[in-house]
Design a protein around this nucleic acid. Structure first.
Lengths: 156, 156
DNA sequence: TACAATTTGAAAACGTAAATCAATTTCGCG
DNA sequence: CGCGAAATTGATTTACGTTTTCAAATTGTA
């Protein structure tokens, strides 16, 4: 089995465990949304609308609200994260693993989203939290500016 | 003149210059909102609604939309910054000076907002941007978790 | 299988932000 | 000063993403 497949199974287990713990039910819709989201949107930052439209092509019976609710579930059990890049709509991203924690650079010009990770920043934040007796659960870090492509285009 | 008064004057100049450059007009309403915002909300993170309600007490004729529009103006000329801490409403904060750049820790329990600044993080981010040929204009950093008060309350 | 509990989808409700527009205000210019 | 073009105002409407509602359907369990 490939590493990707293994991680998908792990996420599946996390989700199933969460459902069991909370006495929720496993449904056809949740399975479909799970598959779509974790098969086609790894490393992406998808809006609910985009995901809904995409799913509807293959599964026209799935409702808008269900996609919303299911993404919330993914978040609650820690297999997806919600981001807001300032355009007014929430974006969801599959969490690959705790070790692949990363942040985003957003180009103000073309809107492209670049990812980066940096251990030094992470340890800084942990120190800061400790210093302030703050128990860190999550953090968000975003850099806004001009990506190299748009910079080139501007000077050209 | 106190340092605070001097900085207020500087902001005022920045605002006036922006208005002049863009051929906008200086109005009674903008003056009032300027005064309220920079007198009573230094170091705070006020929502449009809160600011509007507060101003209305003394100046009942001022409209909701004008407060929105004026805060946007403050942002555009760089004397205020907009933040979104995930509760669905934008918060505005007077920028004190470039040197006093800082970030936020938000308690998931009580909602209190704590500020912190850290030069190491800043220089890290500049390095990251440079490395990726990204021209940094702004960045946002937020830590979410449990503040020391709420931690104490939980274990008690 | 039966029954209680959860989930679903369509639609309505919600809340913040933005757009509209006629009336008013500002400001450059003679 | 006073004219006139341009910007601003505020009440209202509109837009839009998200959440809630609710009856019908589905799920899991006893």
């Amino acid at each position: 089995m490939t590493p990707v497949a293994i991680r998908k199974m792990e996420r599946r287990k996390t989700f199933n465990d969460y459902i069991a713990k909370k006495r929720l039910k496993s449904t056809k819709q949740r399975d479909i949304i799970f598959d779509e989201f974790f098969s086609n949107y790894m490393g992406k930052h998808v809006t609910v609308e985009e995901l809904y439209e995409d799913i509807k092509k293959r599964h026209p019976f799935i409702g808008f609200a269900t996609v919303y609710r299911t993404l919330k579930l993914f978040m609650e059990c820690g297999i997806a994260s919600e981001r807001n890049f300032g355009d007014g709509k929430a974006r969801y991203e599959p969490i690959r693993s705790e070790r692949e924690h990363h942040h985003h650079m957003i180009c103000n010009e073309c809107g492209k989203i670049y990812e980066f990770a940096n251990n030094q920043v992470e340890s800084c934040l942990n120190q800061i939290a400790k210093l302030n007796e703050f128990q860190l659960t999550t953090h968000k870090l975003e850099i806004y500016g001009l990506c190299s492509d748009c910079r080139a285009a501007k000077t050209a």
